[in-house]
Structure formats: structure tokens, C-alpha cells
Amino acid sequence: MKDETIVKYIEGELGEEEKRRVMEWIFSTQENQERYNLLKAKHTASGFNIPVLDTEQAYLRVKEAGRNKKLRQVLIRVTSVAAILALGLLIFNVLNSRGSGSALPGIAETELVEEITPKGVSREIELPDGTQVVLNVDSQLRYSRSFTDSIREVFLSGEAYFEVQRDTTRPFIVHAGEMNVKVLGTSFNVRSYSEDTDVRTTLVEGVVEVGSAYAAPVKLEPLQAAMLNREEKHLKIKKVSREEAVSWKEGKLIFMETPLEEVLEDLERKYDVNFKVQSEALYEYLYTGTFDNLTIEEVLKVLQISSPIDYKKEENKITLY
């Protein structure tokens, strides 16, 4: 079978009949499985690490060390997961900076609702006005039990996706650390984790107005992201893809030339694990690629193939060296 056909299968570009033929070919012989595993490893790691490493040699090292069987199982599982994914019109919204105190300005504590998600767990929430929220891992959302004022305000730390119920008489405002996002009815994403350098709002549909104490209010167009640098107090607007905007709601983590330190922070939140890096040289690597609904064990295998990284895992503690 041609490599081009196998790659199209990996990327999910084949029809059902073609996919069936490729799967039959893969599992027909041990040699075919090994060839497929190598192509999958190359494809997963091809753009994932800067500088790019020799993934074929990395694969052979793993195989020679007696771990090729486990690696084959991981890569096959990655493909089976990727093959059934369906892209949805969802939105990515991440908010940070946990507020101090239990009450919000002008809201009695007895009227306050506080929703909290631990690491590794996300959940859906419906606000009093019908607005739908997906609260991502390691996040906190606070709001009034009943939106009776002239504005609808929520305070969010961590990450959340909003589909706001339209109400032209009452704007909806998200307070996310240094950034405030004002909308009437739309879908958007805000990210404001305390560890992040930037607070970010990404608009998917509708209109939002982004403001802060450091920059004049700016209206975003769909698939634009506003990034407020906490240190430089500078607001930057850039174009994004729909996939970037919705990735976490679909179980994905997407990185674009991202330092290892930031990659590990996202992995810790998603999988509720703790990383320890023994080699400072690993921090010099930038990562570009997608973890597509992988388990933490599969993520570690991809890092091992694409980088000069080895690891030791003991329960939820992972050491990289």
C-alpha cells in the first residue's frame, strides 16, 4: 500500500470504504503494523518539535529497547481515536486570575453562586439567563443567583466557553483578571490563567468588545483573538483558525511554537499530573503540534519519540530527563 494512502488515513481524509481497506491491510501482517506505526510516529512528530529530530531513529531506539509492542499499541489507539472525531462549531474561552474573597461587588454572599472544577474535570453550566457555559479544568466561575440588574456579570478564573443568550437591554460582561469582555449575544473564548503571560479572548461568532485598564476598548471580528500582555500592558489582535478557537472543548491541545514549560502547564491541568524536569536543556525546545484526545501515556510516548526526552511515571508524578 502506498505511503500517501496511509497518511491520508492518519489525517482522516479517506472515505469509509477506503478506511476499511487500510485497516484490513494494517492488521493483516506484523510487518504492515510496524510500517504503519512508523508512518504514524513520523506524522505525529513531524512538526511537533523545534529543532525537528530524526523520528525514524527515535522509533528504532524505542523498538530496540524492547518497547516496540507498547508503542504499536499506543499509535494504533491514537489512530482509532482520531478516526471517529467530528469537528463541531464550538468555542474556546479561557479565563484566569482567581479573585480574592468570596463575594462579588454589589452582590450579597447569599446570592452568589460559585462553580469550581478540579484539574482533569470540565463541566457544563446553565446561567440564570439561559447562557450556556462549559467550564474547563482547574477553573472557577462566580455569578449572581439571578440576573436582575441592568447588566449580567460573571467573574471567571481559568477557562470557559460561553454561548451567551442574546438580550439587547442587558449586556453580558465577563471579568477575567485584567481583561473585561462585553457582549450582547455571541460565542467566544477567554483565557486568563494566572501562570499565562497573556490574557486572551477569542471570538468565534457575533461581536465582543474587549477592554482593560491598559488599553482602549476594541471590537473583535469573528476568528480574531485579543491578547493582553500582563507585563508589557499591551493589547494585540491577531487572526486565528476555528480549530484553535475550539480545541479544548473537543479534547485537543494545540501548540504553536510553544515553550516546553507552557506545554507542561496545560498537560498538568488537563490530566491532573505533576511534572518535574531534571534537564534544563529541555526548556530550550519549542513545540508545534496537536495532542488529539490522547491519554497521558500516549502523550508521553509522542514526547519521547519527537524529543530527546525520557520519563519516569509514578502515579500522577512524572519526571522528565
Rank of each mutant, 00 (worst) to 15 (best):
E18V: 09
T117L: 02
F162D: 00
L75R: 02
G177M: 09
V164N: 03
K252N: 13
R72T: 01
I26L: 03
V204Y: 00
G251P: 08
D266T: 03
P308F: 04
E159G: 15
L294C: 05
E24S: 11
K301S: 15
L53F: 13
G15T: 06
G130P: 10
V263E: 01
V52L: 07
A160L: 05
S100H: 12
L141W: 01
V81H: 05
S97H: 10
V62F: 01
P259R: 04
N93W: 00
T288H: 02
F48W: 06
E13F: 02
I116P: 00
E314Y: 14
E111N: 15
L320A: 07
K219A: 12
R20E: 11
I76T: 04
A176H: 03
S247M: 10
I116R: 12
T169L: 14
T169S: 15
G99K: 07
G66V: 06
I84F: 03
R72S: 07
V52E: 07
S122D: 12
L90P: 01
T201P: 01
E205G: 06
L14V: 10
E297A: 09
D54H: 09
A176C: 15
V154E: 00
Q30L: 12
F255K: 05
V302C: 08
E243H: 10
E315T: 11
Q304D: 06
V7N: 03
A58W: 03
L135V: 02
N68W: 01
S212A: 11
Y287V: 03
T295Q: 07
I296Y: 08
V62A: 11
V62S: 04
P308L: 05
L75T: 05
G177C: 07
E231S: 14
A281I: 07
K63A: 14
Q73A: 13
D54F: 10
S46N: 08
F275N: 06
P222Q: 01
V199W: 00
L71Y: 00
G289S: 09
V218L: 08
G120P: 04
Y287F: 15
A41G: 10
V154H: 00
V133C: 09
K70L: 09
E261G: 12
R230T: 04
R98P: 14
G12P: 10
T202P: 01
K249M: 14
D310M: 08
Q33D: 01
D3R: 09
A216M: 11
T5C: 02
R242Y: 08
K238Q: 13
